[in-house]
C-alpha cells in the first residue's frame, strides 16, 4: 500500500480525507488495542489532517498518541 500523502488528501473532499486517514490508522491501532480500535481511531480523527499524516510517518509519535487517547477514553468511560 502506497503511503498517504498530503496531495492525495487534498484531492479528496474533507469528509473523505478523514475516511482515508482512518483507514490507514485503524489497522495500526487494531494491532495495539483490538477492543478499542474503532473508538481510538474516532478520537484521533479529531486531530488536524496535517498532524495525522505526520503521525502515520512516525510510529513512535503514533504510539504515544494512541496511549494518550486510551487514557482519555478510559477516564471518560469511568
Amino acid at each position: 500500500q502506497e503511503p498517504l500523502t498530503a496531495s492525495m488528501l487534498a484531492a479528496a473532499p474533507p469528509q473523505e480525507q478523514k475516511q482515508m486517514l482512518g483507514e490507514r490508522l485503524y489497522p495500526l491501532i487494531l494491532a495495539m488495542h483490538p477492543s478499542l480500535a474503532g473508538k481510538i481511531t474516532g478520537m484521533l480523527l479529531e486531530i488536524d489532517n496535517s498532524e495525522l499524516l505526520l503521525l502515520l510517518e512516525s510510529p513512535e509519535s503514533l504510539h504515544s498518541k494512541i496511549e494518550e487517547a486510551v487514557a482519555v477514553l478510559q477516564a471518560h468511560q469511568i
Binding site: 474533507p14 480525507q17 478523514k18 475516511q19 483507514e23 485503524y26 480523527l45 479529531e46 471518560h76
Partner: peptide
C-alpha cells in the same frame, strides 16, 4: 447521555460519520 456516544467509532470500510475537520 450524549457523552456516552463520544467519541464516534470508526469502522473500516464504512463512510466516516464524525466531524469532517476542526
Amino acid at each position: 447521555s450524549s457523552s456516552v456516544n463520544w467519541p464516534p467509532e470508526f469502522r473500516p470500510g464504512e463512510p466516516w460519520k464524525g466531524y469532517p475537520n476542526i
